[in-house]
Write a protein that binds this DNA or RNA. Structure first.
Lengths: 195, 195
DNA sequence: GTCTATATATAGATAGAC
DNA sequence: GTCTATCTATATATAGAC
């Protein structure tokens, strides 16, 4: 499953052959079919692997006390993984984009569910911050991540990740804190202008 | 070329066969090879077609007097095409994402160039608005578009496009106008909160 | 320049020895 | 449960008649 996740991320689902995954896992091709009946099941396994990684990450972040701090740390994690994003894009996002082109097999919905996991977790953080539209804010944050990953990848430019990451951190810092009694810590700052 | 652009957008480059494109163009398969030596050349033609459509759009928008109005109209155009984005994603973005998985052929750079066209045009508008970091703002706006398209597509939810579009319009409206002598028209408004 | 028939390569999947 | 050999289907690409 780990080999499938990595190879599918790097080569894309369609360009990845069973032989590629078998080689990465150092097993003969025929052996793969003992555990996965079809190639689609291997892709599904890769998706599950990405979902697992995501759960590990959010589990770590949940140990932080402040929801705002959790979101900031999430953004910092994205930026820290910029090199792989520049070369291959976001693992879940690029896979979802590819699978959504299909109209049979149901793998597209599977990919959507993994994206949902992230959006829902982020929305939960915004809700804890007392924000009025946590789902909308979550779509904004996750959408910004998907967009900057795609642009960094397409333009082969890691500074897209660092620059947009800075902007997101500034935005998160500017959100009013409902727990504070004496107003927000700093003035609002629109995206791209947060300096 | 039009058939190639449409079919490749809908099915993805890898899943599209020459026969698919030939059928869409209503010509026999063998005939395709008289004009395009390889499948990669067909994909390149699809990219060129998308670049052409983009130039038509920016050409239209250039006829508007105000750069801010041009950007707002651009966002409105994206939102108006939400149904196709929900089903197949952004034509250029999804294609770039797919082609960037390759490490030979140079088609990935070709896709990056088309994205660049859009980013550069948007940056030009921000520059005309007197903004300090037009390139950064352009990456923010185009990134937001790519992100909301991917999420709308993965979650099969058109309201992602309308909601995020509203947010972007609010943001564009809140940018200070350097041509005005009596300060910005309204207070700043961070993304997702612009209401 | 258009079209049919076909060659060639490769990938998904299976059979069956071990 | 592991592995080799092979079947079968399909897609790119070409040959050659018209």
């Amino acid at each position: 499953m780990a080999a499938a996740a990595q190879v599918v991320h790097r080569q894309g689902a369609e360009r990845t052959t069973i032989a590629d995954i078998a080689r990465a896992a150092d097993v003969p091709v025929g052996n793969v079919y003992y555990y996965f009946k079809t190639k689609d099941e291997l892709v599904k396994a890769a998706l599950a692997e990405h979902a697992h990684q995501l759960e590990l990450l959010t589990g770590e972040l949940d140990r932080l006390g402040d929801p705002r701090e959790r979101l900031k740390r999430l953004v910092e994690t994205w930026v820290s993984q910029r090199d792989v994003a520049v070369r291959y894009g976001c693992p879940t996002g690029t896979l979802a984009s590819e699978l959504d082109k299909r109209d049979e097999g149901g793998l597209d919905e599977e990919a959507g569910r993994v994206i949902r996991l992230l959006v829902d977790w982020v929305a939960g953080q915004f809700a804890q911050l007392g924000q009025p539209d946590p789902e909308g804010l979550a779509l904004t944050l996750v959408g910004a991540y998907q967009g900057m990953s795609l642009l960094a990848n397409a333009l082969r430019d890691p500074t897209v990740m660092t620059r947009q990451g800075e902007r997101l951190l500034g935005w998160l810092g500017s959100l009013p804190d409902p727990l504070a009694t004496d107003g927000p810590p700093a003035g609002d700052s629109p995206p791209g202008e947060g300096r």
